[in-house]
Design a protein around this nucleic acid. Structure first.
Ligand SMILES: [Mn+2]
Ligand SMILES: [Mn+2]
Ligand SMILES: [Mn+2]
Ligand SMILES: [Mn+2]
Lengths: 160, 160
DNA sequence: ATCAGAGTGTAGCCACGGCTACATTCTGTG
DNA sequence: CACAGAATGTAGCCGTGGCTACACTCTGAT
């Protein structure tokens, strides 16, 4: 995500056949690209949640320790630690053994955007009548698939 | 998903510590469960997309061949074939070599629900002012995180 | 100062969902 | 009827994100 080195799969949009002679159904290049985008969005989701949570912990507790992160996410500490090293590799976090996790500038910035988006999504859901608990729950997954255009529309709708 | 044999990870909600003596922040069992649910939702997403697409192909083309499925999803045929065998394993589809893919009753039923939900999500997005293309795009990911409660709320909002 | 217990880290396993490369089977023309 | 080319299937590789088991390091009470 941060480093779209080649990001997952995502088949090259170009390598399409010459599109049959007649107008036999556009072959839908759009559809494939939509699925592809949804897939890559998903790949960033986990990192986004980590970064948002770490930022929260740093504010509220003053530190973000692997065990806390693991507990809050509902995964084993081993899993959390492995993902934290991925955050480091992606340049979003820094951490030295037994010393807790911190966010880089990039990490903080991402956390901010993610937090804003999370709130907007919850608010939008509430605004259209989704019950609180469902809104909180579903937002956790939905947020990662909301594009800037959609987010902007949500904002306009809420300010109405 | 259909067969929640043990479904991915999803840490046991129960194994929580005795919750410190004083009232030191509820320890948020909710948060972990929310992340967990979002994770399992994701695990079903791919199968949902396959089933919906296969159903579409069966209606429009009369058959669903691996290559078509692969092209529409933007993945290699090898990937599609592997996922198709997972669909078989999950009891959603049937397929014999060189004979195309078909849906079981369970598969058809899932496809129907998925299609309905997909449409509702797109309509909701359009209704709150999301531009068409963004709506189509984002819906492809969002749909998999919309609970029944939220879906019902969307329906009410649109019928308003 | 000790040391039990909590927290961290590492190793190794698994399933999923991508891919490429190669082998096999169909099928429509010629 | 042959057979080239398309479709299908198989094998094997990779990274992610889970897990358990075990080893190491800290730290707060005695
Ligand atoms: Mn989330
Ligand atoms: Mn969030
Ligand atoms: Mn989808
Ligand atoms: Mn869909």
């Amino acid at each position: 995500m941060v480093t779209p080195v080649r990001m997952m799969g995502m088949r090259a949009e170009s390598e399409r056949p010459p599109a049959g002679l007649a107008g036999e159904m556009p072959a839908e290049p759009t559809q494939a690209s939509r699925f592809g985008k949804a897939r890559s969005a998903q790949s960033g989701a986990l990192l986004e949640d980590y970064v948002e949570l770490i930022s929260d912990l740093l504010s509220s507790q003053g530190e973000a320790r692997p065990t806390d992160i693991a507990r809050r996410l509902g995964v084993s500490h081993a899993t959390a630690i492995k993902t934290i090293s991925r955050l480091k590799r992606e340049g979003l976090a820094e951490a030295r053994p037994y010393r807790g996790v911190f966010l880089t500038a990039a990490g903080e910035s991402l956390a901010g955007r993610v937090r804003t988006r999370h709130r907007l999504v919850v608010d939008l859901l509430l605004a259209v009548g989704v019950p609180r608990e469902a809104a909180e729950q579903d937002a956790e997954g939905i947020e990662h698939h909301v594009s800037d255009a959609t987010l902007a529309a949500f904002g306009r709708f809420l300010r109405r």
